[in-house]
Amino acid sequence: MMNLHPSELEALASLIEAILPGMGAGEDLASRYGRFLEALGPARGLGLRIAVRASAAGLPAVMLGRWARLGALGQQEREECVSRLLSHRRYLVRQVGLLLKVACCTIALQEPRTRERLGLPPVARPDRPRGGA
């Protein structure tokens, strides 16, 4: 499994809380994030990791003019940060926001408890047989 620094997981958790609060930022985050990065491959995975770290560190300054990490903001301010990113007038900035939204939703909704709470079918495990006890 990929070795992820706690500060990166903290950054990701703060983004998930900003985008999809109360869903999937907790249990087993490292393994879900690691699987997603592996699926993307080395180059695109690295791009996402940079985007996650940079956003968590720099979004409050760029979007709100506040020198703080995303995780240090209140929930309303966090959401405002991401909302401004996603509705930014510059296309490429919005695309970064969209990339983060897709990544956070995908990672968040891999969490079994969140899926169960939302009434979603469980994520299939292809390495296990579909039937049997």
Binding site: L20, G22, S83, T106, A108, L109, L118, L120
Partner: peptide, 22 residues
Amino acid sequence: PEVLAARLPGTGARLAARVAEM
């Protein structure tokens, strides 16, 4: 569902409410 969630408009509490009614 995870792709649908990302396609729903909004973010934060508004998005979470929409995801809850997916």
